[in-house]
Amino acid sequence: MSEDSEARVNTYGFRRDVQLAGGCRFRSGALVLAGVIGVVLLTIDPPRHIVSAAPQADKLKESKFIAEGEKLFAPSCGNAYCHGTSGVGGGAPRLRGKGLEAAYLFKTISNGIPGTAMLSFKSELSEEQIWKLVAFVMSDVKSTSDAKPEASVAGKPSPSTKASAETAASSSITGSAQAGKALFFDSTQSRSCHHCHSLQGEGTSIGPDLSKVESRSPRVLFLSIILPHDIKDPRYATVRLTLRSGDRIVGIKKEEDAESIRVYDTTELPAVLRTIQKTDVVKVESANESVMPKDYASIYTMKQFLDLVTFLKSSESPVTLKDLLE
């Protein structure tokens, strides 16, 4: 990499390029300007705008760095369904010995490749770890050993799913955001929230998005789960279709055109997006009540409501039973 000489080196021996989200990169003559912008960006929202802290080319060739990359590569990338042992190809393409470039590799490992099975790893690995993978992939195929077994990692479930009620403080009854998240996204429960609601981009947007309900009081959130309530936003009004066949559909209308009406049928969850020809419809009724199931009070325990509300509030301090009742 020819730009190495002008790279600034941080304490880790990584070169810090400043890159805008749009992809403009400032180097060389623009270094001063870049520095200024970098400071500004750092002040505003550092993690989103500084894309990479690229290590020096020498670092990518360091055998220890490569070996660490090899260790990371083996379980995540090297399995037979993916890039194969040592990255020479499996169910996914061969990576090593193809002359792939560092920046491309870093970007691809970080973000994945939409339209393919290549996952994004930025939530799982640190930037330094991704650079280690880059170093390994770029390394000479013959210079690394066959993948060696590594026995140190215990095969236990990830922390995000180890949610349990025991994390609550013993002095008062409180909720756990982790447990609430698990309930919200529990795909084994037909009444689970995510079948109809999204939150921070995850889940299904049939009903209202819940990303912004955190401003509401715990009590209001709790009551809106257990009690039937009216819908203020007409987009989520209940629609009842009676068909010529005699069938009835209850749900939320998504859209309609001259010929058909598209309704999320919420009779059973997950909801079914049904396209009904207007010629098949006898009657359309709508009401401002919610299609939300009305039996949550008999599905969840008090502790589980605390968990859910704590998760929805996404606050630092857990919601207590007192909060729900007041």
């Binding site: 379980p75 090297g78 399995n79 042992t85 799982e124 066959d146 993948a147 590594e150 995000s160």
Partner: peptide
């Protein structure tokens, strides 16, 4: 080669 791995949903 067996490589222990952590389960992530």
């Amino acid at each position: 080669t067996v490589i222990p791995q952590e389960a992530r949903e």
